[in-house]
Design a protein around this nucleic acid. Structure first.
Lengths: 388, 388
DNA sequence: CCCTTTATTACAGGCTCCATAGATATTCAC
DNA sequence: GTGAATATCTATGGAGCCTGTAATAAAGGG
């Protein structure tokens, strides 16, 4: 059905998409009368549009709400189950794959443990195992996926290549998009893991709806990601939030201040920080001083970003954010002397799935883009195929 | 003419606006056939739409292009002269008002000299004199203006209040929007001067079309402004680009390194920098060292922003940018060790009108917003009235 | 069992768009 | 100067979509 310029069919397509969008954003069943109010169309037109959407499979009828006065109205809901997307977190210690529906709700996940010394090909193999496990648990095939986004440590450029990595020796230069493309036919995106975590917090977590925020990954290697004007800020070459590379911030070495504490004696580097935070919480002066020193350095880099961007919120994520009750007040105190206005600081709420969930969010953005702004054409629900 | 939801009249409005937009963005007369190609409509529909736009006064017919084969086509242009906007630069040393047409071309300007010690009420009086001079030169009345934006030093919050100023002792807290509103009935916006300069460079200057850039105001009091994703980044409280407030950058004192040079002996602070840059250009080692020191400190704050944002471009504006041939290479060298990727650095091209022009750009954005996205209604050209 | 309330269905009317064909205006070739 | 070629303009017919109104259907309360 070829449609030209400002055709009447175009108007119908617009109205159809507007109705579908209204149902999608309502996140609850709507009656025709409610849709009339939301779209501004007449009841007759909405009836036509809804019939077409139902016939194509985008929406489904649910049973009428009981206990209402008058003839009960039919209710329709957006079918979040017609498509699924995949979010993948390729971390140092684990690979996590999450399958979500079109509302971003987790359907199933698969997890494979790896470690710092896992070789590149083994890690890539673990990615497939996690994906397969998630797909099996979701009862889906790879060809059912409408989109996939993988998060990796390191700088990820526009072409999806991992260009700089510190944690994993042989990971630089890996072509994740190419690897995933061997078995996935849907559109694939690769992004930095902290950026995906920030996106997840802004969509599903503690920063829901905040337009400008700085996400701080606090851990042995701190990092940062930015949401600006409601969108993930990727930067020209993908290297945003790297203020920690400046020597004056001390970000590269600041975790050491925690590890030399007596409270951490004998513990593994992973354990050390938690022990020090616990000791500080219990009142150990040495541990408290170490936390303050850590917060002082963290505040230097954070202040640079806050003064540059004046965000509404700072979100604390990463391993150390589990001790936010100790770290957050220390960071707040340390930021005070640097900032004109200290933004709100809140700890992450999503936990260790946040990177994979952020990947799903990014893939869903792509699905929405395709659905709502691609020439306004309304098609049958189907998994899009990668073109390249 | 009341129009509901997905009315057919709505479709006509959309098509009308699309045609108008095509004519506006072409910035040159178009024939009906060219409009058919750009809008995707049929010739018959475009004919109708154009007739209405011409009758309403939005577009005008120009004489046909000679020397073409076949019957010469009528040509139409967007009437950039039906409306005007005002850009105002309230600086330390001058007040400059610029009247532009809807294409952002300067029609006339008015300028009043002031200085650091001009009292608040005198400066506000100078603003009116500059505005009146510009209006007289343009042959317009205040009621003809479709929008006005004033740029001021200091932090400007969302309500248009100037909250923090360093250069002018009694300027903090001034309610510029209220002052301008006494005689201007159009929508009024107040913004920080560096932000407006950045916008002007991105729309009309050296950074035309660049999506992500950092604008560096280099002068005795350096500052910065950000364009992110093609839009001015205002921040939560208006205090963006203030990384120079961190002591470690040395921005507050770095101009002193220039003024203590022998090359600047006896000169006024305003003159000193230019003399030192001249001496450095001529090969004076002491001056070159001073420039390098200045560039080193400038690079500290710049690197923090570049590492945070990974912009495509850095634009050098402000007084010292006239000596960009000396300063730019020094800044480039000083940035090298800090950055993963040193962005392109270019000197400003717009000169001292840039803040006022940026104000006009911001006012024009508001005009476009109102014209193209306000419920899709197409009205007669007229100066909008402020509601508040 | 009837009445009220609300949702659905059917039909007429109006508006806008597109396609096609004929009329018009200019240039180029001879 | 005349005619062919080219491209634009004008007018008409046909089709699609939306709206409004009136008639019909379905549930709950008295």
């Amino acid at each position: 059905m070829q449609v030209s310029g400002g055709d009447l069919q175009r108007l119908r397509q617009q109205n159809t998409l507007n109705s579908l969008r209204a149902l999608r954003e309502a996140r609850a069943p709507l009656t025709l009368t409610e849709l009339v109010a939301r779209t501004g169309l007449s009841r007759a037109s909405v009836g036509d549009v809804v019939a077409e959407l139902q016939q194509r499979g985008w929406i489904a009828e649910v049973e009428p709400a009981p206990g209402t006065l008058g003839r009960p109205a039919k209710r329709y809901r957006f079918r979040t189950d017609v498509g699924h997307v995949l979010g993948i977190d390729i971390g140092v210690h684990k690979v996590l794959a999450v399958v979500t529906d079109l509302a971003g709700r987790t359907i199933a996940s698969g997890r494979v443990a790896v470690d710092r010394h896992t070789a590149r090909h083994e890690r890539l193999e673990a990615v497939w195992r996690a994906i397969d496990a998630a797909l099996v648990a979701a009862g889906r095939e790879a060809s059912d996926l409408w989109g996939a986004t993988a998060g990796s440590t390191g700088v990820v450029n526009r072409e999806g290549l991992v260009t700089r990595v510190h944690d994993l020796p042989d990971w630089a230069g890996v072509d994740l998009a190419g690897h995933l493309g061997q078995r996935l036919t849907c559109p694939i995106t690769i992004e930095n893991d902290s950026k995906l975590a920030a996106l997840a917090e802004q969509r599903l977590g503690v920063a829901a709806g905040v337009q400008d925020l700085v996400y701080l990954h606090v851990g042995r290697r701190p990092g940062a990601a930015l949401i600006l004007n409601g969108r993930l800020h990727h930067g020209f070459s993908g290297a945003t939030g790297e203020v920690g590379l400046m020597e004056v911030t001390g970000w590269r070495t600041m975790a050491g201040h925690l590890e030399v504490c007596r409270a951490a004696a004998g513990a593994s580097p992973e354990e050390a920080a938690r022990l020090v935070f616990d000791a500080a919480r219990a009142g150990d002066p040495e541990a408290q001083a170490a936390v303050d020193t850590y917060a002082h350095h963290l505040a230097l880099g954070t202040a640079a970003m806050v003064l540059t961007l004046d965000p509404e919120l700072v979100v604390l994520g990463g391993g150390f954010s589990r001790s936010a009750d100790v770290l957050l007040p220390a960071l707040n105190r340390a930021l005070e002397p640097h900032c004109l206005r200290v933004p709100g600081i809140r700890p992450s709420t999503l936990g260790e799935e946040c990177v994979a969930l952020g990947g799903a969010c990014l893939a869903l953005d792509d699905v929405d883009e395709r659905l709502f702004s691609l020439e306004g054409a309304i098609l049958d629900p189907a998994a899009p195929q990668r073109i390249s």
